[in-house]
Structure formats: structure tokens, C-alpha cells
Design a protein around this nucleic acid. Structure first.
Lengths: 299, 299
DNA sequence: TAAGGTTACGGCGATCGTAACGATC
DNA sequence: GATCGTTACGATCGCCGTAACCTTA
């Protein structure tokens, strides 16, 4: 047994048990991985993969059991390398953040700015992704950190930290009837609505609040992106339901806004990362920075 | 990085950072491990071991951090091999049980007997050990399973299962004054006592009960072993305080016994094993057998 | 016939063992 | 001088790549 064989098992899983693709990913020829797999199975004394003729089509019961351990080993191996790299030079490295447009544009700028001042050597990569994919990004090791707004499903492999609570707000052109008078869900429902796509930034919270009130919104446009929504609000398509922080008093001075606090339950933004994944010290600092920025929002 | 290097780190820890001993254990010459360690440290870019000249004297901060991951990898590697072996032949193998004399003699015979009938191919090794060492045996992988009577300290690496509750009993020759009349701690304390050594089979429970009652026992002899205690009770040295189950009505017909239930709080026997350690299916069956045997005791 | 996998063989590199050397008590 | 670790060098074994071959959609 050796680490390359362990790695191979992981890669095979990621390539749908395709030896050729696995070989490509591991930068060796196909025959090499074929042999390594055979040797490993021979060593263990039983096949790990279900085969149709020669073709691998899935894991055997044994293979399934073992894959957990394989993942553990690969993770620990990564951790060793990361710990050492961090130890060698704790001020350089990269952070991969998986997040949504709203976070990237309206929440992250301040903490990122402050972090950069302390760690100018760290490169920050932001991957925008749909909320449902954020956690997958972590599991696939494409991101170190995810910042989520929709609920994170219970996942024992994940550590989540509460970041901040936020409310939806309605935006509309100045002079719009909704700028004045009572603000209720009932009244809101009388206007054409523009809001987030399904699964995005608290959309489900909106759905639930309306369902509870027995109302149907006339959603004329949905987008993943607060800015797109605002653009169409400007063009008079309807009123926008966006996260409060996406309203910028300066840039959006041509729009009016009213908070929906009390009408739609607050949502909470969370930081998530893998439990068994080693985070370099600078990422821990970055998380601390996020949390202090979150404090500021509350205040 | 490869698995032998990871293994080497573990062995080095176990040999007090002695390269020569580590080499011996790994069945290679000393120069080989010297090189492997160098290569590994070079690969990581920083030393893992504190050195005094050439001699290794301990772990660096980096080494310490990494050792956790090393342990994880070694454990997972073991697990893979065990899972495969178990899968290949789930009816053969070994069980190493770390336990105390009392358990080995008075509790285990029945479940072991029943287990043997189902799994005649499994070899059972029983290591008797002092209660304080039982858990160490697990951590050192010298035992798969520990059966403890003294409290198991909170250990996140450990899974413990409650097995059964038991009481102390007093044993004495027939015709002894204590055979008749009131049985109280006060009265007990007027006789010379024979009981377990410190740290053994509920000795601390006895201590606590007396301390609470403000009494001092006159312990004239303490032993690790119920049978030794009974022997000296027979020779008239005093009355014995042993676990109730160590009184065998047939073999010990020449002795009288009275339960101390109500006077000394009950103790509980526990099964413990390592959390991340893979247990072959037959060991799981063995644990089940232990638990049903424990049920029988309760009834 | 293309795609996926296995087998045979030669070459290269990694790792080992021998052995000589250096340091420390 | 005994113990412990390092360095040099030759030999071996493992693993890779090339290439031919097998099987199935």
C-alpha cells in the first residue's frame, strides 16, 4: 500500500471509475494506474471495484467501506503539507472563498481590505457560485471557506460559524406608491416583484413568509444578483426585494428603500469550512476578520 | 511523502526518537531511516525533530502539529487492512482484550464461551493489566477492547459502553460475628479488612463511601485479585471486601458472604475501544455477546 | 472502430545494504 | 570505546512508459 494508490482511489471516484481519465489526472499513462489498482486489490486480497468485463462500473461493498478511510488519509496528507507550508511561511499563500454575488459585493470588501493590510502576501480567490454549490466547493477542495446565506444542511463534516443576521428590503423608484403609507406583505403583493432566483440569498425565506400569510407574489423577474434586480427596478419593471445591505445610499440614491424587518424573518449568513481540513493561520485570521466585520453590521 | 515515512514518524515517537531502534523495528538498516527522515524533512521544508547535534531529542512545534495527522493516517491505513482482512474472512482473526483479573475470571467466561461457539476460528487473547493501564493498552494498539471497572476518564478518542452495575460484598468464614446481625459500614470498620489494591476493581468506590461516613478501614492486606483476598480470608486474616460476583457459591462454600448493596455505591463495568479504530465484524459480535451477558447479570 | 482495460518488456530512478566516517557521552 | 547519526557507493527492486493486444459498445 502506498500513498499514490490511495490517491488513485480518490481520483477514480472523481472520474466515475474511469482508469484512463484517472491516469490523465495523475500525469501517468493508463497502464500504470491499471497495474497499481491491480496490485492494491491483490494486496488486500479482494476487489474494490465492481466490474463489467474489464470496465469499472462502481465500488464493491468492500470498496465502499474503504473509501472513508481513503478520504481520511488524503485529507491528513493534505493537512501535513498545508501545516508545513504554513509553518514555513505563514504570511504567504492563498485563500479560496466560495460565496455568492451579494456577499462578495456587499459584505466582503471591508474585511478583505483589512485582511490585505495585514497579509499582503496572501492571494485571495473568490469563486462566485450558487448557494447550493457552495458546500460542494468545500467538499471538492475547490474552496477553503464558504460564506452562505441559505441554510446549511446539517453536515457532520462541516464547521459552521454564525456570521451576521440580515433583513430583506424593498427597493423602488422615488415617488413609487410604496414609498408612502403602510408597509405590509399584503400591500407588497399588489405590486409586480423582482427578486432572487430560487435557492439564492434568502429567496426561500421570502417564500416561507408569504406562504404563511397565504399570499402569492407576482414575481416578474428573478435573478441571482442584486445589481441586476436594481437595474430592472430602475427601468420600472416593479419593486425589488433584495438584501438590505445591497442598497447603497450613494450609488442607489435614485432608488428608495424600506426595510422588511418584521415582515420577513431575518436570514443569517454563515461561514462554513471542512471539519478535518487544516486551515493555515492566515485563514484563521481572515475568519476572525469576517467575524469582526459581522459585528460591525449588527451594531 | 510516502506511507513508510509516515510510519517512521510513528515508530520514532515510540522509540523516544531513536533512529537505530526505529530502524530495527522497521526491519531496515539505520542509514535507511536516517535518509528517509532527511528526505521527508527536506520535502516539507522544515525540521520535524529537535536535535542536539545529530541526536534527535524531541519534536519541533511543526513536528508536534503534524503528529496528529500522522496518527490519523496510520490508523486509517490499519483500518483499511483490517476491513479487507475482515471482508476476506470474517470468521477468522484475533481479539485482544485488556481487562482485570476479576472480569477475566468472573464475567468473561460465559460470553467468551458463547462467542467461541459461533466463531471457533477467532483466537482470543486476554491481557490482564492494572485498570489504569487498560486504556493505554488501547492507545498502544496492544488491545482492541478494554473492560474497565474503575471510571474511564473522559477521552474523546474513546467509545465506552456501559456494561453492567455491580456491588461489593463482604466475605468471611462461617461463624464469623459479621455473619449475623446488623451490617453497616460502622460495624464493618471494626474488623480487619482485606480488599483490592489502589486503583483496582472499585477500590476507590470503597474509599469514597468510607470517607463520606467519616470512617477509616483497617486494611490489613490489599491485592489485585479476588482469589488472593479470599485465600487470606480463609486463613483468618480478616474479612474480605470483594466484588459480589467473585463469590462462587460452590467453590467458596466454606465462606459466607453478604452483599454491601446500599452501603457502598454500585460500580459500573464498561467496555471501551478506540473511536477511530475499525473493529472486525466478529469483534462487534463479541461486544454484543458481552452486553447480553451483562443483561443476564442485571436480571 | 473507438474507448476502456490488460499484459509484456525495457529503462530509469528510488531505496536499500554495506561500509567508512563524525560526533557525543 | 560505545552509542548514535551521517555520507558515499554499488546493487536491487519498484514503477513508469512504450507498445501490442483484448473486449465491448
Amino acid at each position: 500500500m502506498n500513498l499514490n494508490q490511495i490517491e488513485l482511489l480518490r481520483v477514480l471516484q472523481e472520474t466515475n471509475f474511469n482508469l484512463s481519465k484517472a491516469a490523465e489526472r495523475m500525469y501517468v499513462v493508463q497502464s500504470a494506474v491499471s497495474r497499481q489498482l491491480q496490485m492494491f486489490e491483490t494486496e488486500l486480497g479482494a476487489p474494490l471495484f465492481e466490474r463489467n468485463g474489464k470496465k469499472l462500473i462502481g465500488l464493491t461493498a468492500l470498496g465502499l467501506r474503504i473509501m472513508d478511510e481513503v478520504a481520511t488519509i488524503n485529507q491528513a496528507k493534505q493537512n501535513i503539507q498545508n501545516i508545513a507550508a504554513d509553518f514555513m511561511d505563514g504570511d504567504h499563500g492563498t485563500i479560496n472563498i466560495a460565496t455568492t454575488h451579494a456577499q462578495a459585493k456587499y459584505f466582503l470588501p471591508t474585511p478583505v481590505q483589512r485582511f490585505r493590510e495585514k497579509y499582503p502576501g496572501v492571494r485571495i480567490y473568490m469563486q462566485q457560485s450558487s448557494p447550493e454549490n457552495l458546500i460542494d466547493q468545500l467538499h471538492q477542495h475547490k474552496a477553503d471557506l464558504a460564506i452562505c446565506t441559505e441554510k446549511v444542511q446539517e453536515d457532520t463534516d462541516l464547521i459552521t460559524k454564525h456570521c451576521y443576521d440580515w433583513h430583506h428590503a424593498v427597493v423602488m423608484p422615488h415617488g413609487h406608491p410604496l414609498c408612502e403609507g403602510e408597509l405590509s406583505l399584503q400591500r407588497l403583493a399588489t405590486f409586480p416583484i423582482l427578486t432572487y432566483s430560487f435557492g439564492y440569498t434568502g429567496r426561500s425565506t421570502i417564500e416561507n413568509a408569504l406562504k404563511k400569510a397565504g399570499l402569492n407574489l407576482d414575481i416578474v423577474l428573478s435573478a441571482a444578483d442584486s445589481d441586476v434586480i436594481k437595474t430592472y427596478v430602475r427601468s420600472g419593471l416593479g419593486v425589488g426585494l433584495i438584501t438590505g445591505m445591497a442598497y447603497d445610499p450613494e450609488v442607489d440614491a435614485d432608488l428608495a428603500t424600506r426595510s422588511l424587518k418584521g415582515l420577513i424573518p431575518s436570514s443569517s449568513a454563515k461561514i462554513a469550512y471542512l471539519k478535518n481540513n487544516y486551515l493555515p493561520s492566515y485563514i484563521e485570521h481572515f475568519i476572525a476578520e469576517l467575524l469582526t466585520a459581522a459585528q460591525a453590521i449588527k451594531a
